[in-house]
Amino acid sequence: MNICVYCGSSPGNDPDIINRAGAFGKLLAENDHNLIYGGSSLGIMGTIADSVMVNGGEVIGVIPENLFSKEVAHRGITRLITVKDMHQRKSHMAELADAFVAFPGGFGTMEELFEIITWNQIGLLDKPVTIMNLNGYYDSLIEMMDHSVEAGFIKPNNRKIVQVAETLEECLELCEQA
């Protein structure tokens, strides 16, 4: 199974998030799942990729040409695919993945998360999407989505596209429903 993880190229300020990202990479490898991700060697992205590799798993990174040097492309992974732009990156990652997970990250992570939710909503694909809510990082976002349902802007059935995991094991189980 190929699991796409959207996450930050920054480590953030909470060392527990980096540690748990490494633990998730190990969990993926131990369960014979491949990592699909944005191709960086930095931050949470690099931590997950390194952990999968160290634990005998396979990692496919997809990075746009303009971010190749800026995000310090990871050259120690199974396969690094360079694409023209962010649109191709997201499309290629979606083709490769069987399930999607959002770890903590910034605007890019959230943009990727919402695009893949939308693709599920409009029927372009039907693959599990899970928010890994480490240390309550996504509490406000989850609250906003629930408020959008109450306000009539998101249909309750569409809200079910997004699953929320509080533990790494729960996250993996939700992905495996693909």
Rank of each mutant, 00 (worst) to 15 (best):
A73T: 12
I142V: 15
G8M: 13
A21H: 05
G46R: 06
G105V: 07
F24I: 04
S40W: 03
N133L: 03
I81L: 12
E143Q: 11
D14Y: 00
L125T: 07
V52H: 06
V83Q: 02
H87P: 00
G57Y: 05
N135L: 13
V5D: 05
A97V: 03
G136K: 12
T118V: 11
K84A: 15
G123K: 14
G22F: 04
I122N: 11
A94K: 05
G43E: 10
G56I: 01
A21D: 07
W119C: 12
E65N: 11
A49K: 04
V129K: 05
N66P: 04
M53I: 15
S10K: 15
N34W: 00
D139Y: 14
M132G: 06
S69C: 01
G12E: 11
N2T: 14
I17D: 07
D98M: 02
P15W: 07
F103T: 03
A99D: 02
S51I: 11
P128S: 10
A49R: 04
G38E: 08
R20W: 13
L28N: 04
S91I: 07
D14K: 07
A102G: 08
L125I: 14
M110G: 00
P128I: 07
I117Q: 00
E143R: 07
E58A: 06
D126I: 03
E58W: 01
N55Y: 09
V83I: 12
V5K: 04
F103N: 02
L28F: 08
H33I: 03
L141F: 12
I131D: 05
N135D: 15
Q88F: 10
E58K: 14
